[in-house]
């Protein structure tokens, strides 16, 4: 269950700093959950700390480590809803046009909801769908994911269209970790599974992992269901012997560090420092990613081969 504790509960322990990519980059408490909560405790409004709030990558790492069980990402999204970002107009327009697009619904009990990066890589997307044996959802909801991140209220018509394609569904596999968390809260009865978990449960994929791999977990989905998934990935580690992008607290170290302006393309992303930190000191021969965004980040800084989980089986056949 998601805690309702808010900034008032913050004791200032700083545990959230240890896992925060935004803090790691800036070494400035103002850019951390600790900084947000303490600023609010001392009378700051969302507007006073707007720049800091937009800098958060919403990786969710601070949620499971907070001993006061503050729902930090919930608090950040709540504060963002009180602000207006320059990119909001574009996101709203995108939702409006999506709401009007006609929808041809294919009936199935399980569907795959791709994220923006997968939508831009249709070949990999169809390979994933084939591997999992499920169709891709007609309405991907990528605009809704962006709206959640920007703190924009989702228009009811848009939500209606999105949910229309879900009739008869029993399970949804979602690539976007933030959307997964949001939908879980909205529809607690539905069975949502992250793409990372779904693929890493697949026997072929599990068998293809090697001890010299670095397996890179997508942080948002992982942290949203941390207490269950930490055990899932620990079993995978024990079985494969692979290294994981987990820190000593078993929190996933993000390979990218993208603020909302960077996601919206208003500022160029700069993932190099974060991706380098994931690789720092590791002796590995292959990087296995759950998210395509992470693949792009690693490919910029290393010659080590980077593969998506869904490509693992093929990698095995080719002996790469």
């Amino acid at each position: 269950m998601i805690s309702t504790n808010d900034h008032a509960a913050c004791s200032g322990c700083s545990l959230c700093l240890l896992v925060c990519p935004m803090w790691r980059h800036s070494r400035d408490i103002a850019l951390s959950a600790h900084g947000y909560a303490k600023a609010l405790q001392h009378g700051a409004s969302a507007n006073d700390i707007a720049a800091e709030l937009w800098s958060c990558t919403l990786c969710g790492a601070c949620d499971p480590v907070c001993p006061e069980q503050i729902n930090v990402t919930g608090m950040i999204l709540d504060l963002r809803r009180r602000l207006e970002h320059v990119g909001s107009t574009t996101v709203r327009a995108r939702m409006e046009s999506e709401a009007l697009r006609p929808l041809a619904i294919q009936h199935a009990t399980v569907k795959l909801l791709p994220d923006q990066a997968l939508l831009e890589s249709p070949e990999l997307l169809s390979r994933i769908a084939a591997l999992l044996g499920i169709p891709v959802a007609e309405d991907d909801g990528a605009d809704i994911a962006l709206a959640v991140e920007a703190g924009i209220i989702i228009q009811p018509q848009r939500m209606q269209r999105f949910l229309a394609s879900w009739r008869g569904l029993k399970k949804i596999i979602i690539a976007d970790g933030l959307l997964l968390k949001h939908l879980r809260q909205l529809l607690p009865a539905m069975n949502f599974v992250s793409l990372g978990e779904a693929l890493s449960t697949h026997a072929v994929v599990r068998r293809s992992l090697r001890a010299t791999d670095l397996y890179v977990i997508e942080p948002r989905a992982y942290h949203a269901d941390f207490h269950r998934l930490v055990k899932h990935y620990d079993r995978l580690r024990a079985e494969s012997g692979s290294a994981f992008n987990l820190d000593l607290q078993r929190i996933a170290i993000p390979a990218t560090s993208r603020s909302l302006p960077q996601r919206l393309g208003l500022i160029a992303p700069d993932d190099n420092e974060q991706a380098r930190w994931v690789l720092h000191g590791r002796r590995i021969s292959r990087i296995v990613v759950e998210s395509l965004e992470d693949r792009a980040a690693f490919e910029k800084i290393t010659d080590i081969r980077v593969v998506h989980l869904a490509e693992l089986a093929e990698d095995k056949v080719c002996g790469k």
Partner: peptide
């Protein structure tokens, strides 16, 4: 010198001693 920046350091882990700096330097 903003209140929010100073307030971040208003107490320590003990939480029984409170004081406000005039300014914060990182």
């Amino acid at each position: 010198e903003q209140a929010a920046a100073r307030g971040t350091f208003a107490t320590d882990a003990g939480g029984t001693s409170y004081g406000m700096p005039h300014g914060v330097v990182v």
